[in-house]
Design a protein around this nucleic acid. Structure first.
Lengths: 125, 125
DNA sequence: TGCATTGGTTTCCTTTTGGAAACTACTTTC
DNA sequence: GAAAGTAGTTTCCAAAAGGAAACCAATGCA
């Protein structure tokens, strides 16, 4: 008799996995969470401010990631007719629905840092 | 007079951004959320079951991702002395603390799918 | 004897990702 | 007239990620 570990093939399961894949595809790349996290705190920022604020990113990457997110309606790009034109980026209302994800990720990262100082938390909790 | 969009350099801000980076580094790669999402539903699975269940992954990737997560104490690997040895993977209690992140990601992905059918949700909400 | 299954590893290859630096173009300031 | 700031784009390259297929050792099954 072969004891088979039963595997859950329910629709709910598949829907969930597909949902995870969808989300992560939209938020793929090294910088999107970082940019969104920054943008969600300040509401609106200019390109050069983001370039300075998002530590380590180059203009090519920043530009590309912002374009991706604009296509997915997560941020808006607005050109302002100032003397040297400025461009402001802001998170859309739709983009703000990512808030809970970012919050959970930040929360986890903080407790992860803490667990580094007392590793038994990682083992026993 | 130069009007400067003021940028928030508070410690809270930096801590948050660092936390986001930390988390995403641990969960980097194409498959970790997918594997964790699967493993969190079934509790324990064998290598070959995961290989079949995580659609599209190859054995090299699965092996590598599981090792990564084992190093980070997110999953455990247990060899069972059955006739052909079997190996079961399960999410640790610590790994389960990622549950809320995965849940939020799945939730968002589901509402994203729905918004594809009624795109105005993406614009106005 | 030969094929299948278990849990991987190894090799080879392609694609993707990402970074540095240079360049554009326009405007303001020194 | 030169430098600096605005917001990018382009080019060129290196590294990393990822996939397909072959391989391995052990055992079970027909």
């Amino acid at each position: 008799m072969k004891k088979k570990l039963s595997v859950n093939h329910s629709e709910i399961c598949k829907t969930r996995i597909t949902a995870i894949k969808d989300t992560m595809e939209i938020l793929s790349g090294k910088w999107k969470f970082h940019i969104l996290g920054t943008l969600l705190e300040t509401d609106r920022m200019r390109f050069m401010d983001l370039l300075r604020e998002v530590e380590g990113i180059g203009s090519k990457m920043l530009s590309k990631e912002l374009q991706d997110m604009e296509i997915n309606h997560l941020v808006t790009r607005t050109v302002q007719q100032t003397k040297p034109i400025t461009v402001v980026y802001e998170v859309t209302e739709y983009g703000k629905t990512l808030g809970p994800i970012i919050d959970e990720i930040a929360k986890w990262g903080i407790s992860y840092r803490n667990s580094l100082h007392s590793p038994q938390d990682r083992e026993t909790a």
